[in-house]
Design a protein around this nucleic acid. Sequence first.
DNA 1: ATTAGCACTCAGAAAGAAAGAGTGCTAAGC
DNA 2: GCTTAGCACTCTTTCTTTCTGAGTGCTAAT
Lengths: 356, 356
Amino acid sequence: MELTDRQKQILRAIVDIYVSTAEPVGSKAIAALPDMKFSSATIRNEMADLTQMGLLEQPHTSAGRIPSPAGYRLYIDELMQDYRLSLDETRSLNEALELKSQEFDKMMSQVGKLVSKMTNLPAYTVATRQSEAVARHFDLIMTAPGSIILVLMLSGDVVKNKLVKLPVQVTEPELKLLAAVLNASLTDLTAEEITGELLDKITRSAGAAAPLVPLVVDFTLECLRQQHGDVHLTGQMRLLGQPEYRDAAEKAQEVFETLDEEMISNLPAVLPKEGPVQFLVGPENVAKELKDTSVVMMRFDIGDGMQGTIGVVGPTRMDYAKITAKLGYFAENLGRMFQKSNPAMPPALSDGESNP
Amino acid sequence: MELTDRQKQILRAIVDIYVSTAEPVGSKAIAALPDMKFSSATIRNEMADLTQMGLLEQPHTSAGRIPSPAGYRLYIDELMQDYRLSLDETRSLNEALELKSQEFDKMMSQVGKLVSKMTNLPAYTVATRQSEAVARHFDLIMTAPGSIILVLMLSGDVVKNKLVKLPVQVTEPELKLLAAVLNASLTDLTAEEITGELLDKITRSAGAAAPLVPLVVDFTLECLRQQHGDVHLTGQMRLLGQPEYRDAAEKAQEVFETLDEEMISNLPAVLPKEGPVQFLVGPENVAKELKDTSVVMMRFDIGDGMQGTIGVVGPTRMDYAKITAKLGYFAENLGRMFQKSNPAMPPALSDGESNP
DNA sequence: ATTAGCACTCAGAAAGAAAGAGTGCTAAGC
DNA sequence: GCTTAGCACTCTTTCTTTCTGAGTGCTAAT
């Protein structure tokens, strides 16, 4: 059953208003809108129809209407109008984007904090591997007699390190030898390509440092098999700024007990559609604790087989258009930053007028 | 004015009860305590005195008493009795302590999560340098033509890395040369010992890779000068589990707006006393937003010039004894783990009764 | 010095009353 | 036949009022 233009217009108006007020919207408020040419009575009739269709809900008889999850979904898929960032908003986004370029993980975490701040909602970031990971470089550095640090560089410019306590005494040259062997034989291989045979060969070539091989290899395999980087979730408290959680601290707590890091990294699996922006609206989340919670996700390109995801968590009544616009801006610029690698530069924009 | 034994006993009882019930404590409840040999009337008199002295407060005339900040302070300093961890508690702490040994930062963050979970309160961890940092090892790894990763190992087994976009074309051997030069001349020096002269010398020796030198050195100096590692703050939401914040989401939000990472790393500066455990009780926090919030901090040894701090954030009415006991257990075992380096092992403890 | 007894206070719960926003329906208008 | 004005009705919200009970502080007795 197709909606008439008028119905669409009304539904859109209801979502728009409800999103910003968090109060049920009455027919009068709609009728008062500048480009609404009908009386409140007509609108009441249409609202009754939309409720019938399951796109609106009524908290109680004498209240206005609020969008149902289906209503939000329709709004997102068809009705939502691009939100244009104001100059002020663009400017503060740009300022924020001046991240210090640093370790990858720290950057991701900083991006999360930024997004959370700019949207005033909890946000997360994850990096996900697109292609099979391979090791690019091994390094073994002795820190004290008996302990070394293993530095492992993977595709995607990911650097991992681990402090290893040595099972045997090893000298510097022996360590160098092992590193050379590892770099010669274990780089550019995916986890599957690292066979037992190969390991035997490496162990034989490793000389005195042979007992170290399994330690190094296990760590390497573990790293190679990791599909996701760390999940950086921040700004949880900002959920409390939303009226629906203001006096429902318990609910807010539940949300983040459910939406832990594991769940977040599995989110893409339950997505209804593909695309760079994705929405999980209220009950589309499987967990019942999240039935009033929505997530907006945006992908961005990191390059070298990695992909980043930024997500924003909020009440079902959230400003999808605005959040999408802001996330989009982030994604675009982050993609650019990461691809060009450092130095990180937000798009050139002389932050006043530019001279002729 | 010294307290009588009976007054001490009553004050201690009030804190103990209030801490666990979060309700004002009446004279009757105290009198009902097994080892309380006096009638409620007597206790009422003593309570009036204690109130006079500023150690107790009365939310309103017809309510019981609650400890004042000064009361808590006295309790902490003199009255608090060691909380004995139950076998169950020890066991779950031990289970929790089986951290996967991994990157330092990740471990610290995991410790924070753990402490937060075990105390059911927000927690943070920081690593602080005790002695001057020096670089231990440099590594330059080419990831793609035009970009390299700089891996820097510092004292304290801290590994930093940074993706560097090259200003000039450099070949592998040139990179190797630079790394060798850096390792030869820049290691084991504190930030102050790295002089302009020295840098000139390095630049001259660096050959084609000379333009890279300032990039590397700047990053190195930045790392060396960092007094604190990252602050890992987690479990903020758990503050909402506390009755005083249950219906005061706003207050909880304020707490963490104020208690940001910067403030946390400066906390030690405002401490009233020295020692491995430290308490910041309610209004002893300078920020007025934190006047109902306490922090318990515990130091632990990491070795190699580094020191860790675990902190727990809670309402002023928090179970100082229990938290202290748990933190102490963590600190002790973490200290042991970090010093021995990996593999991380919680103390051997046959998790039942030990045989004679 | 301690305690029983009692009048008094005051927050919080429960119950009732009033206000107001918004609906659905009916009947009139274009 | 679609649209709209009018109106009775519903139901939340808010404000009062009343009631209850825990707890105190004081006085007088032990």
